[in-house]
Every structure is written in C-alpha cells, then in structure tokens.
Simulated assay, not measured.
Amino acid sequence: MKKYLIVIILLAIQAVVLGQDTRRLMNLRGHWKFSIGDRPEWSKTNYDDSDWEEIYVPERWEREGFNGYDGFAWYRTKFSGKGLNKDRYHLISLGYIDDVDEVFINGVKIGFSGGFEPFYYTAWNAERVYMIPPEVLNYNGDNQIAVRVYDQGGEGGIYSGSVGILYLDDYSAKEQVFLQGVWKIKIDDDPDFAKVAYDDSNWQNVMVPSNWKTIGIFDLNDFAWYRKTFTLQPGTSTTDMTLIGGKIDDFDEIYINGVKIGETNDGKWLGSSRSFSELRVYNIPNGLLKPGKNVIAVRVEDIGDNGGIYEGPVVIMPTSEATRYARKSSWWR
C-alpha cells in the first residue's frame, strides 16, 4: 500500500515542474548507448562507452533485445550546449522509466525517482522532468547524460513519453535562483547543521520538493535538516531578494549562509496546526547572499503523519516580484 501511495506523491511532485511554462528546445529521442550492470564510473563525463550496445529511447529494453532482463542498466548520450541560452533555466525530460532512476549531467546527479534496494519502491508511472543547475552545463560544447535505471520485474527502461531538453519560458537565470532538485537531508537536530562549513557529504539525498515518504520515511514525528549548496550566476542581484520556500510539513527555520531568515510555527498540535499549508516567503537581508557559492539550511519539525518540503516553488527572486510569482498557483498545484 505504501508503494502505491509513493507513486501518487511522485506524480504530484512532477506536476510542480510541469505546471511551469516549459518549451522544448531539443529532441533526444533516438539511439543511446546502453549497458546492463552497475558501475559508478558510468556516470562520469570522460568514461569511454564506445563499445556499449545501442538502444532506442524511449522503448522498453525487453523490446530492444534484452528480453527477461531485470536489474540495473545504464543509458548514456550527449547533447550540445551551444544552442542553450545562459539566461534561461533548462530541464531534462526523460518521459517514464520502469522502475527507479538516477540522472547525471556531466557527472553531477541532478535528480532521481523511486527507491533502490534495500528500500525499493517503484516510480514506473511518474513522468521524469528534472531541473538542470546552470553551473553544471557546458554552453560551449558537449554535455554528457547518464541515466542509472533499476527494474525489479516485468518490463524495464526508459519506455515512453517525451525525451528532450526543455527551458522555462518566462524565468531568467539572472533574476531567479531555482532551488528545486537534489538536496541533502539528515534525521537529527544540531545547530551546527546551519553553518556554512558543515560537512554534509554523507547525508542522504532527497528531491525538493517532495514528501519524506518518497525516501521511505513514515510518521517521523521528529526533527530533520535539509542542506543545499547553490550558485549565484554572474549578474544575479545579491540585494532586495526574497526566498519562496514552498510549503513545509510542519514547522521550519530557514538559514542562508548560517543566518536565520525566517521561521513558521503556529505552536499547535497535529490536527489543529495549519503551518503545513502556509507558503513560506522570507526576505533575505541585504549583504547575506554572495556571488558564487551559497548554502541554504532548513530545520524541519514534523509533528506527525507527512513531513518535509513537500510543495514548491522553491526559488530566490527579487522582492519586487515575489508576490506576483507566489500568486501563480500553477507553480505548486
């Protein structure tokens, strides 16, 4: 029953991305490199896949000559960054994947759906659309895509849907800083977690926005922290900016570069508290954001049932635009 619930949650998460105004920039349907098995170096940009098989994407791998195969397999292909606009945010659409996936661009993990063993759960009917951080892209040459797939049974692979590179039509990479994507999470509570220099490299990965149930956490009723390092692109303002932090179940404190910028906690018990339904909108003190690398940390207290940063948008933008963007309900519903 929990696995079916997780699939429903994943479908809702993808609606957050698909609800934004996206346009297709390039079509990636066609023959990709393919290998069964599982080796971490297959995510790397410089890995030599010249002797791999080729497989058509999208199509079930059983119909491409791998009938009866269950387990791990990897896909790889490249696309040129020369047609990308540095002022736009780009996404990758991979359609539907049976069952579980992790996606790497130029060796950096940018998204995942489902859960690998030993905490397996399928995401076979959740459409994959992942934001690509601008700092990951090579705008002057090739970009390497690597997709790790696990199929537990039946048919597997990148099997249907739209496959390509998209861009957000109305949003500029120089004006907004999208924070949706892969974050770090740890179930614990320590004030040091807010510090910029804290080492979170051994923390678990989590997609934001998503419910904790998508990573196998049920009814936590405790504290957890999120962390993410993000990059301000050249030309992005560091003053008069606001964080729209999505919706968080239940209470939160949010820190940027070690400084608390806001919190939401109505102090009520499960069943009467409405903090989980409030969109977090916090002004960022001038001088706090820095050109280049920055760190955001979110302390979350769950008082029962669901938990986590479960709805977007999660984005930093000019304060003058924050109200207008927050009112665009298609972003998070």
Rank of each mutant, 00 (worst) to 15 (best):
E135I: 08
A173M: 07
D48E: 03
T264N: 11
V259S: 07
D169A: 13
A146C: 08
T214C: 05
F223C: 04
D142L: 11
L232R: 14
Q233V: 07
I105L: 00
G141K: 11
G216Q: 10
H31F: 09
I254Q: 03
E117P: 15
G312C: 08
L289K: 13
W212K: 10
N306V: 11
S320I: 15
K78Q: 09
K268I: 01
D169P: 00
F223W: 14
I36E: 01
F116C: 01
T323I: 15
P191M: 09
D240C: 02
V281K: 15
G164P: 02
G114V: 01
K213H: 09
F119C: 02
D49I: 08
I36Q: 02
Y310F: 15
A194V: 07
D142A: 13
I110T: 08
P40R: 08
L168F: 08
E54V: 03
G246M: 15
L168D: 02
G258C: 12
Y4M: 14
I248P: 03
K213I: 10
P191R: 14
N140K: 12
Y167N: 03
F72V: 03
S50I: 02
S210A: 15
G157M: 12
Q204G: 05
G156R: 10
Y198T: 11
N211H: 12
G245S: 13
G292C: 06
I303P: 05
L25P: 00
V57H: 07
V129R: 12
L220F: 11
Q152P: 00
I185C: 08
V314N: 08
F223Y: 15
G83K: 11
V298D: 03
N67P: 05
K86T: 05
K290D: 00
I105F: 03
I256H: 07
G258A: 12
P209R: 13
G65Q: 07
F276R: 14
R60C: 00
D192N: 13
K290S: 07
D87C: 03
G235T: 06
D305P: 00
R299D: 04
Y120A: 03
D222P: 05
M317C: 14
